[in-house]
Simulated scan of single mutants.
Amino acid sequence: MSTNYEILSSDITRNRRLSAKKVYVVNAEVRVRKNVRLVIEDGVTILIQNGYYPKSQLKRSALIFDQGSMLRGQRFYIKACNEKYRQVKNADNGGVWFLGNFCKASKDTVSVKINRKIPPSSFKAEMISMHYLGRRDPERETSRTLAVNDDIDGISILGVGPDEWNISEIRSHYSGDDGFDVTNSHIKLDRIKVVTPTEDGLNLSSSRVEVRRSLILEVTKTKYTDRDIFDFETDDGASYLEIAQHCHVDIRGVFGDELVLSSKDLPKPKRNGDAPYQFKGVTRKAAALIYSINLD
C-alpha cells in the first residue's frame, strides 16, 4: 500500500489539522504563524527533508512555531528524509523550533523579542519523538553548503515561558548537534530522553528546565570530541536543571565543565573534566539541582 504524502512547503497561516492517515513532508522553512492553531493527531509522522535550501534563514528546511502560535498534539514523530521522502539516518536539516513571548532570545540567525501585541505562544502535546534532526558541522564547508556559523540543534526553544509550554515528553534521537537546546526560557516537562546526539545532550543558555518523572541522557563516547551530557551557558543569566524527587534518572557520558551538582542521590562528578560519568537510579532522598551561575 503506497504512502499518502502531503507536502508542506509554505507557512501555515490558518488553523489546520494534520491527519494520522497521511505522512507530511516539510521541504522548506515552514512557520506556524501567530494566532494559528496546528492540531496534530495521535501517531502522525512529519518528515523534514535534508539538504541545502537557500530561501531559509537556516539554509535548511525546518519547522518553526512562531511567537503566538499554538500546537495541540498527542503523540507524534518528526524525522529526517531525503528528496524521495524516504526516512534516512542522517541529520542535515533545520530541525524544530519553538519561539515564545516570555523573554528575548537569539540563536543561529533566529531571534525573538517580547511583544505585548502578540499573544503568548501555547504548545501542548503528550509526546514528540524526533529522529536525525538538525545539522552537523560539515567536514568541508563551501559556498553551496554554507548555512549558519555553527551546526543546528535537533530541537530549539527560544524565549518560552512556563505558561506557554505544556509538552509532557520530549525524545531526541541522533541529533545533528545538541539533542535538546533551551535559550532564555523556563519550561517544565515530565520526561526528557536524548539518545546519542552529535554533541551535547542538554544545552541550557540562561534557562531553567524542570523535569518531574524521567531524565534519560545517553551521551556515551563517539568519535566526536567536546561532547558532554550537560552544557550550560550564562550569557544572560544563570542556567538551572531541576530534577524532582522520585524522578528516574539515567545519564551516561562526560558530565560537563563548570557545573555545580547539588544532590543527595547523584554522585559528584570527578574533577577531571573528561572522566566518564554514569548514574542510573531514582532521586529518592530529595530533588537534585544542576546549575551554573556565571561560568560557561
Results as ranks from 00 to 15, higher is better:
Arg75Val: 10
Ala147Gln: 09
Phe232Ser: 08
Pro269Val: 02
Gln57Lys: 09
Asp235Asn: 10
His186Val: 05
Leu261Arg: 06
Asn184Asp: 11
Cys81Ile: 10
Thr220Leu: 07
Ser129Phe: 00
Ala287Tyr: 08
Asp200Arg: 10
Phe255Pro: 04
Lys117Tyr: 14
Ile155Asp: 13
Asp265Arg: 09
Arg135His: 00
Ala286Ser: 14
Ser207Ala: 11
Tyr77Asp: 02
Asp296Tyr: 06
Phe232Cys: 07
Ser121Leu: 08
Glu210Pro: 10
Thr142Ile: 09
Pro120Phe: 04
Asn272Ser: 04
Phe180Pro: 15
Leu146Ala: 13
Arg37Gln: 09
Gln67Ala: 00
Phe230Cys: 01
Pro276Asn: 05
Asp190Gly: 05
His246Asp: 14
Asn90Arg: 11
Arg284Leu: 13
Ser19Tyr: 06
Asp151Asn: 10
Pro54Gly: 02
Leu289Cys: 03
Lys59Ala: 08
Gly68Thr: 08
Gly134Ile: 01
Ser292Gly: 02
His246Cys: 13
Glu41Ile: 01
Lys268His: 01
Thr234Phe: 01
Glu141Ala: 06
Ser2Ile: 15
Thr183Cys: 12
Lys84Pro: 15
Ser263Cys: 01
Gln87Arg: 10
Ile46Phe: 05
Lys193Cys: 01
Gly100Ala: 14
Ile192Met: 15
Pro269Ser: 03
Val219Cys: 15
Pro269Asn: 04
Gly51Leu: 05
Ser239Met: 05
Lys124Met: 03
Ser207Asn: 05
Phe230Leu: 06
Ala244Thr: 06
Arg191Gly: 03
Ser69Phe: 03
Tyr77Ser: 06
Gly179Val: 01
Gln74Tyr: 15
Gln57Leu: 07
His246Tyr: 13
Ile251Tyr: 00
Leu241Ile: 07
Ser69Val: 07
Asp150Ile: 13
Arg37Gly: 00
Pro267Val: 00
Lys22Arg: 13
Cys103Thr: 13
Val32Gln: 03
Asn184Leu: 01
Asn82Asp: 14
Pro120Trp: 05
Asn15Val: 00
Asn27Arg: 01
Val96Gly: 05
Ala28Asn: 12
Arg208Thr: 15
Lys79Asp: 10
Ile40Gly: 12
Ala20Gly: 14
Arg33Ala: 11
Met1Trp: 13
Gly100Cys: 14
Ser168Pro: 01
Asp250Met: 12
Ala28Pro: 02
Ser263Pro: 03
Asp274Lys: 13
Ala105Leu: 10
Asn272Leu: 03
Lys84His: 15
Lys107Phe: 09
Ile40Asn: 14
